[in-house]
Simulated scan of single mutants.
Amino acid sequence: MREFENPNRWDKVAQHYEKTAHPFTARFAEAALATVSLTSHSRVLDVATGTGALAHAAARMGAQVTAVDFSAGMIARVAAAGLPNVDARVMDGQALALPDASFDAVFSIFGVIMFPDWRKGLVEMARVTRPGGYGVIATWQEQGAATFLLLGQIRRTLFPERENMTMPAGVKAMSDPEELAHELVEAGYRAPRIDRVTFDYHLDVGMLDDPEMLFGMSHDWVALSDEEKVAVIAEARRLAGDQAILPIPSTALIGVAER
């Protein structure tokens, strides 16, 4: 099992994720929310919610939100915000324990793309979307984003003979706009629209002191020797130079389609 497929691993990093990744993914969540119109009567589902970047933003807009994730640690962070219109539940996004056609809008912000059976995740999203409702998914382009993108760039610099960074199958399959549109239609949606959105991930260079926390979810970090890991961190520090924050431009595709 890869680290990102292990709920126990996500449980352990939930608080760190909320501090470092949540503010970054929240920017993409807001871009995704801008693709649909929500009201206080809207029923919204956030699949693989993480620490709730999308769920909290939708709730602040007044929507009634159900947020699900397979990690109890992540769900605990969502619930800790105490928003009365957010129902946070531990649930497998590949087999949603939710009725058919029960949501006006179903989102997954960099969640379904990580699933072992990501196509089943998309089908489940479509199943619980009401006719005339919307499904919205955010996915990275093939080289990933944030620390995954930085690690891949450094690996190609230091170890050019190695294979390119190993991304989850869902990311690889949906990293092209036409392919993402195709997969949304295959899942049961129609009339997909795909937008590219880029934001900088701001890497606190001090976090390089704990590289296992930064890179430990990536097989391409785990596969390195101790000596190679030291070289990767040295290269990251070289790239940062005198900066306390290293910006990493990261591009996502946001797909929205009607049920």
Rank of each mutant, 00 (worst) to 15 (best):
H202M: 14
D46F: 06
E163K: 04
R130K: 10
H56Y: 14
T147A: 07
M114L: 15
P211V: 15
L184R: 05
P99M: 11
I137V: 13
Q64Y: 12
R27I: 10
G170Q: 05
H182R: 15
V65H: 03
A95K: 03
A79Q: 02
A81K: 11
L203T: 05
L96P: 00
T66G: 11
S102D: 14
M114G: 04
D195M: 04
R119T: 14
R2L: 14
R119I: 13
W118D: 01
N164F: 06
V36L: 04
R27D: 10
D220Y: 08
G152S: 08
R9T: 08
P168K: 05
A252C: 07
A80M: 04
A21C: 09
T251G: 07
P168N: 11
A187Y: 10
D200N: 12
P247V: 04
R89N: 02
A67M: 09
V47K: 09
S42R: 03
T251M: 08
R259S: 00
N85A: 06
D209R: 12
Q15C: 03
G216S: 11
Q15W: 02
L96T: 02
A34L: 09
P131D: 07
A145N: 01
G188C: 05
L158E: 06
G52D: 12
V230L: 12
R156F: 08
P131L: 10
V232G: 11
Q94I: 00
A88G: 02
Q243E: 11
T157I: 09
A105T: 03
F107A: 11
R259F: 03
G50A: 10
S71G: 03
D69T: 10
A72Y: 01
V36M: 12
F110Q: 03
G73D: 04
A231L: 08
A236E: 13
D200C: 13
I194N: 04
T139P: 05
V128H: 04
A101T: 05
E235S: 09
H182G: 11
N8W: 09
V36G: 00
D220M: 10
I113S: 11
F199S: 10
Q153C: 08
A252T: 08
M91V: 03
K19H: 13
L246W: 05
A101N: 06
A14H: 01
S175F: 15
F70C: 01
M207T: 12
G52A: 13
P99V: 01
A26D: 15
T20R: 07
P99C: 01
L54Q: 09
G133P: 06
D11G: 01
E227R: 14
S250T: 11
A63P: 02
A146G: 05
D87P: 00
H182A: 13
A97D: 09
R155S: 15
M167F: 03
R130S: 14
P7R: 00
A48D: 00
Q64N: 08
M114Y: 06
V256M: 07
L208P: 02
A236W: 07
E235M: 10
D242F: 12
K172H: 11
A34E: 14
P192D: 03
V185P: 12
A63F: 12
K120T: 14
K120Y: 08
E212T: 06
V256Q: 02
A105V: 14
H219D: 11
